[in-house]
Design a protein around this nucleic acid. Structure first.
Length: 287
DNA sequence: CAATCGTGGAG
DNA sequence: TCTCCAAGATT
């Protein structure tokens, strides 16, 4: 136990947000749904979609029995709609291979569609009380600063970084709370752009603060282009399909993105992903 | 390892 | 207005 644990656990006890995938009602299924939705997506935007989702599909079997297109529609504007396909596929896998119960082991979890290292660790930890290093962008940033003394972690997780994170995981009883506490600190205090070091419970232990908060000096962090990209076009097309009760004509899609070459390329990729199906010359969400 | 994949709020 | 970026995964 480093000097970080006690103040951080204490801070979390006092400042944790009440979220519907935390607390006593946090079933593994709710944790799993929340984690998929939270990938690269802010909490505030997830909340309403999550509530509607678990209300409609209270168990993996409920979702698995629904048409995958309904999952895509219910995903709404959360972004990265392939996650809806993967969550649906994961529910099917849970029913087929795990008797309808979300598995609790890291190995079983990471084998599910849409579940990578972070999500498997998070579900095993928050849903089952397991002891895992949970390395999300928040945890990486907090440890980069507090322990590493730099403003931002590198572009990908290094071996040393993982070792450092694992060395900090406390005993079984505190491991899940430690993980969520570090994440929460990164989300609320040790934020990327303008950290509130004055409110930080581990400010006196922070190597980055002690060094005078030196500016990031690593490889350039690539921004995400957006305007005019295929992603934007895919988003436009998906919005049309989500909002339509049934299938739509090619003309409707053309209105969403008049330029034909890029539109067709985006549409082809959506078909390849299984986010869209073709029906008699028209297009729709999958059945 | 690097590219790809949405969305919209915040600064 | 425009850049940044938010509980990543997959190829």
């Amino acid at each position: 136990m480093s000097e970080l644990h006690e103040p951080l656990l204490e801070w979390y006890a006092a400042h944790a947000r009440e979220l519907p995938w935390r607390g006593p009602g946090a079933t593994p299924w709710r944790v799993m749904v929340s984690e998929l939705m939270l990938q690269q997506t802010p909490v505030a935007r997830v909340l309403p979609v999550f509530e509607a989702w678990v209300e409609r599909w209270p168990t993996p079997a409920d979702l698995a029995a629904a048409p995958v297109g309904e999952a895509v529609r219910a995903w709404g504007r959360l972004g990265y709609p392939r996650r809806a396909l993967r969550l649906h596929a994961a529910a099917v896998a849970v029913v087929e291979h795990h008797g309808g119960e979300v598995p609790g082991s890291y190995d079983d979890l990471i084998a599910l569609p849409g579940v990578g290292d972070y999500t498997a660790s998070a579900i095993a930890s928050f849903g089952f009380g397991g002891r895992h290093a949970v390395l999300d962008t928040n945890v990486r940033r907090v440890l980069a600063r507090a322990v590493g003394g730099v403003e931002h972690p590198g572009p990908s997780v290094t071996r040393a970084e993982r070792d450092r994170a694992e060395a900090l995981v406390p005993g079984e009883d505190d491991a899940p709370t430690w993980a969520i506490a570090v994440m929460e600190l990164g989300a609320l205090v040790c934020t990327a752009a303008s950290p509130r070091c004055g409110d930080c419970p581990v400010a006196t232990q922070c190597a980055w603060l002690a060094a005078g908060r030196p500016a990031y000096d690593g490889p350039a962090r690539r921004g995400q282009a957006w305007a005019g990209t295929d992603r934007q076009v895919r988003g436009r097309l998906m919005a049309v399909l989500r909002d339509a009760p049934g299938s739509v004509s090619p003309d409707r899609l053309a209105e969403a993105w008049p330029e034909p070459v890029q539109r067709e390329r985006a549409l082809a990729s959506l078909l390849a992903d299984g986010l869209v199906v073709r029906q008699e010359g028209r297009y729709a969400l999958p059945g």
